[in-house]
């Protein structure tokens, strides 16, 4: 079929209202089917892929990241699928054979200069989607902003090119970040020289460490296990090396760790919120050959 014939056929499908062919054999119907398929693919990828790609999430704020990605992907999939479906279909149906190597253009298309209702519909749908996105984002963000009483305070200090963590009240300053399970934590983040980015990827929280400023972020670790703290703000020469191990441990393990780092048993028990009797005295705690290698106690 020459292009002209194809084109006439397409034109006829919509202009001859008398014996309009069934919906699914018209361009709109075909595009609708392609759209459905593409949307389904997008939704499936959007629901299952992030779970496999993201690192093991260790807190509620971390799960928010996963949920946001899935939700946004599912919302965006139909929109993207529509554009793709139309583009895909246009290549199949509206491209005259060998037009790519022809020096003469195909005959002109229909002179549609616009479609007011369609434009309004398009803008309306995107406005609606934006409002949904915004409500989602605001809800999640405000839930993350809630401060908990009795949260464990950790003072985080960045400098080129190392993080140190101070646990107020215990006298412990460490290079590794140890956190008790199921206990709200408040990080007071600052820097000594330039801006660093304090980023706990598995917990989905991040804030910059600014010199002379204190910024606070909160989370509650829920899952035991190790994680890595990476600097997310280019901070100079050895930025790539600015990462530490950390881990989420049980409160008792946390108390023992504090003691091994030089805290008194009572201060450690107070900070870890466990009975003093459950902690092992410092002298019996084991240290590995490299004294700093005390971080990952898992």
């Amino acid at each position: 079929m020459s292009f002209e014939q194809q084109f006439d056929a397409i034109e006829n499908e919509i202009t001859e209202e008398g014996d309009a062919p069934p919906f699914f054999s018209r361009p709109g119907g075909k595009i609708f089917i392609i759209w459905l398929v593409f949307t389904a693919i997008g939704v499936v990828i959007g629901v299952f892929a992030p779970h496999h790609l993201l690192p093991g999430l260790q807190s509620g704020t971390g799960s928010d990241v996963w949920a946001t990605i899935v939700f946004f992907t599912v919302l965006a999939a139909p929109v993207a699928a529509f554009v793709y479906a139309l583009a895909f279909y246009s290549l199949l149906a509206w491209r005259p054979k060998k037009s790519g190597s022809s020096d003469e253009p195909p005959p002109d298309g229909p002179p549609q200069r616009g479609n007011g209702p369609l434009t309004i519909l398009w803008v309306g749908i995107s406005t609606l989607l934006v409002i949904v996105l915004l409500v989602w984002g605001m809800t999640v963000w405000s839930s993350q902003q809630v401060a908990h009483d009795g949260a464990l305070q950790v003072n985080v200090t960045g400098q080129q090119w190392l993080w140190t963590y101070e646990y107020p009240g215990t006298g412990v300053t460490s290079r590794t970040l140890e956190l008790p399970q199921d206990r709200p934590v408040e990080f007071n983040v600052t820097a000594l020289d330039v801006i660093h980015g304090f980023w706990l990827d598995t917990m989905g929280i991040q804030t910059d460490a600014n010199p002379n400023e204190n910024t606070v972020i909160r989370t509650t670790p829920t899952t035991l296990g190790g994680f890595v703290v990476r600097c997310s703000q280019l901070c100079g020469l050895n930025h790539a090396f600015m990462n530490n191990k950390g881990s989420v441990v049980t409160p008792t393990q946390f108390g023992n760790w504090l003691v091994s780092q030089g805290a008194t048993t009572s201060a450690a028990a107070k900070s870890a919120d466990v009975p003093e009797s459950s902690l092992t005295p410092s002298s019996t705690s084991t240290t590995t050959a490299a004294p700093m290698n005390t971080g990952a106690s898992q």
């Binding site: 400098q159 080129q160 090119w161 020289d193």
Partner: peptide, 27 residues
């Protein structure tokens, strides 16, 4: 392994800049 200096040995506000951020001096 990487090594560097962690003392602010540059000048003035650039104590942690300049020399610390230039390859071949303090790292």
């Amino acid at each position: 392994y990487a090594w560097n200096c962690e003392a602010p040995c540059g000048q003035m506000v650039a104590a942690f800049g300049g020399v610390m951020s230039a390859y071949g001096f303090m790292s």
